[in-house]
């Protein structure tokens, strides 16, 4: 109630009854125009591919060829293994970077500095050619292996991709840890938790909310980065596609086969990411439960 209401100086203004209005929704002409242009462009591209010199029957034939499926499985296994190694190292080095212990801090900083500072393909080549530097690996007298036996294309790819990924994930995890309020750590300390338990039980579970979207992104990148391992003879899907087209000359067809599989895998992963994000937003005010 306005204080002046009812006084002589104030008179309630006369307004029309709002229920008498008809409301016209906004027209989005721009959207319709854009949609039409995009459909036109897509139609043009599809037409070009359909009429171009592509044998679609060859694409269909090789989509499920044993060598392609074998490469696909290798790609998926490698992406998962390298990412698991990357996340493990990432968490480890993030915690080390944030440690008050200067030895741990600077070792972790050095690791991140080196592996972010060199191209991934160069790291893969280094791992693959490790035998040139160290003909044997192990502890002399106790156990020793010939490096060429240990560093197979699979191992070289795993180490190269995983360790490189760890350097990036460490930064993501560090940002996640920093996003958790210091009060959480203090409360955990006050009930007698030691530092590692606080990380594991209190800080990291809450940091997940911040960590998962970028790590999901990097997982998707990883699926595609495995293709770099074709240069060190790891038989992932792209390398196997190449091997086939070197023999039969169907270059574009086999590249399309590989592209279809990459898109399929990435689509499934994007879907999984959505569910993980929901799982780790427990207890958040803005989570919109059950949506």
């Amino acid at each position: 109630m306005t204080p002046a209401a009812g006084s002589e100086a104030y008179r309630t203004p006369v307004r029309p009854d709002p229920t008498a209005f008809t409301i016209m929704p906004r027209r989005h002409y721009g959207r319709w125009l854009a949609t039409a242009l995009i459909l036109l462009a897509i139609g043009g591209i599809v037409r070009a591919f359909a009429l171009g010199q592509i044998e679609w029957s060859v694409v269909g034939q090789f989509l499920t060829a044993p060598a392609i499926l074998f490469g696909l499985v290798n790609t998926i296994i490698m992406a998962i293994a390298a990412m698991a190694l990357g996340i493990t190292l990432g968490v480890l080095f993030a915690v080390m970077v944030m440690s008050p212990n200067p030895v741990l801090h600077y070792s972790a900083k050095g690791y991140i500095w080196f592996f972010r500072g060199t191209p991934l393909i160069l790291q893969l080549l280094l791992w693959f050619n490790l035998a040139l530097v160290f003909p044997t690996l192990g502890i002399p007298g106790l156990f020793e292996f010939r490096t060429v036996d240990v560093i197979t294309p699979f191992m070289a790819t795993l180490l190269g991709l995983g360790i490189n990924q760890g350097a990036y994930t460490a930064e993501v995890v560090r940002a996640g840890i920093l996003s958790v309020d210091q009060g959480q750590t203090e409360a955990a300390q006050s009930i007698g938790m030691a530092r590692p338990t606080i990380m594991r039980r209190i800080v990291l579970p809450q940091a997940m909310r911040v960590i998962i979207p970028p790590v999901g992104n990097e997982f998707i990148s990883m699926v595609k980065l495995t293709s770099l391992a074709s240069v060190i003879q790891f038989s992932e899907i792209l390398r196997n596609a190449q091997t086939i087209y070197f023999a039969n000359g169907r270059v574009i067809e086999l590249l399309i086969v590989a592209a279809i599989w990459y898109i399929a895998v990435v689509s499934v992963m994007s879907f999984g990411q959505h569910f993980l994000e929901r799982r780790f937003s427990r207890g958040q005010a803005n989570r919109g439960r059950g949506q």
Partner: peptide
């Protein structure tokens, strides 16, 4: 035992 101004309950 400690009780904080901003509660600091474990949010998750």
């Amino acid at each position: 035992g400690m009780v904080f101004q901003r509660f600091n309950l474990f949010n998750h």
